[in-house]
């Protein structure tokens, strides 16, 4: 049953996306894109960009997007609930423990190990998404120069410049990318 499958998949994703923000991407790539093939890597790149321009964290936005795509509105609701449920339960337990003992030393130690690992996992997901963005070939496995996607390369370069040089916020950067894409298409 698709609802149950969605629910369980997003419970796993919710339970292991430590670090917030992009930390959910490697999990979604593994479970939603590769294992279930509910969305493509390109669609994951799209929802990540759309996420930057709408309120709400990437995890919630991606859960809703995938759920709606796979099983309509209720799919979206169920995937989103699944995504939030593990942290909800864990946080109530942690908060209860903390209010009682007012320290979370062991959790801090776990996090010291998690942080560097999460950076690497996000880096791996970012590499996949960058490859799919810069090469238009559907499977992304034919990295020849003919298939290079000009507008994505130009907007990636311009975006990087705007980020480093002017510290432009991500909404602005994505908007610039969209405009570059349209201009290059029109000429």
């Amino acid at each position: 049953m698709i609802y149950l499958e969605l629910f369980w998949t997003f419970i796993q994703i919710g339970a292991f996306s430590f670090g917030g923000g992009y930390a959910v991407l490697p999990m979604i790539q593994k479970y939603v894109v590769e294992q279930h093939q509910w969305i493509t890597l390109g669609e994951l790149a799209d929802i990540t960009s759309i996420s930057q321009m709408t309120p709400g964290p990437i995890a919630i936005n991606a859960a809703t997007f995938v759920g709606v795509k796979v099983a309509g509105i209720w799919g979206g609701v169920i995937a989103t609930i699944g995504c939030v449920l593990p942290s909800f339960i864990l946080l109530i337990i942690l908060a209860y423990y903390f209010f009682k003992h007012s320290n979370l030393h062991f959790v801090q130690n776990i996090l010291k190990g998690l942080r560097p690992a999460i950076v690497s996992l996000i880096a791996l997901a970012a590499i996949s998404l960058t490859l799919i963005a810069l090469w238009t070939y559907p499977q992304g496995d034919l990295l020849s120069i003919d298939n290079l996607n000009l507008s994505a390369i130009v907007s990636a370069a311009v975006s990087l410049f705007l980020l480093i040089k002017f510290k432009l916020d991500t909404i602005g950067v994505i908007a610039v990318g969209a405009i570059i894409g349209i201009i290059i298409y029109l000429i």
Binding site: S49, Q52, A133, L134, S151, A156, A157, I180, G181, I184
Partner: peptide, 16 residues
């Protein structure tokens, strides 16, 4: 076309 351009931007944002 807009989404393709945005994919480029999000690559840069994530890399950064």
């Amino acid at each position: 076309a807009a989404l393709l351009g945005m994919r480029g931007s999000i690559s840069a944002i994530m890399g950064y």
